[in-house]
Design a protein around this nucleic acid. Structure first.
Lengths: 97, 97
DNA sequence: ACTCTATTTAGATAATTGGCTAATTATCTA
DNA sequence: TAGATAATTAGCCAATTATCTAAATAGAGT
């Protein structure tokens, strides 16, 4: 979960996730959408992969990235749940008054 | 919002927020709970303050930290909502951070 | 096998972060 | 005013992160 929050700390990576929401996309097409070099994007992809936020699938010469929503959900809603936010479904933590 | 996610990227800072969930606490008492020096904690507090995740209130020689849940909620659930996560329908907003 | 394209790796460098000790500021109490 | 306590700021260092260019790797098609 720490890896997930670290990954989310970068705006480029957050936007990558948002773009993947529309559907799987190749590293190349994703990289085109950002004003940074391909190696830099590759590094961002590695961070996202490490966090489990995306999965990869090879398709010929391309590597297709898929969003892994469940990891995002578990981290985001799990943490939010601790504070009684949202549904709080992922991590039921009651107050200890 | 970027500041919020940056702040959340550090486990110490996330735990500070969780401790503040129980109620306001002084910098000193908060710092005691972590195995780092007070100046280091002070720096973490500054990041949290900068992100708007906590507010401060002076009480004599002490500085009391309060959790600002709404900022946390807006960032976490707002971002989660983009992915259709969260309790039911989320606010339909696309793009950018 | 050769070549083209897509992607990652390597190596270098600059910026940021997290940590420390020591010094400073602010406030309270005597 | 002096002394004690709480918190932050200042100055420094090590480790990490972000970025680049250039080179290497992996397949696909010819």
């Amino acid at each position: 979960m720490n890896d997930v929050f670290k990954a989310l700390a970068d705006p480029t990576r957050r936007e990558v996730l948002q773009r993947l929401k529309a559907g799987p996309m190749s590293a190349g097409r994703l990289a085109e959408a950002f004003p940074v070099s391909k190696p830099t994007m590759s590094a961002h992809f590695a961070v996202l992969r490490q966090a489990g936020l995306v999965t990869t699938q090879k398709d010929g010469t391309s590597v297709i990235y898929h969003l892994n929503v469940s990891v995002l959900e578990e981290a985001l809603l799990g943490f939010a749940g601790v504070f009684g936010l949202g549904s709080g479904a992922a991590s039921p933590q009651e107050e200890k008054s």
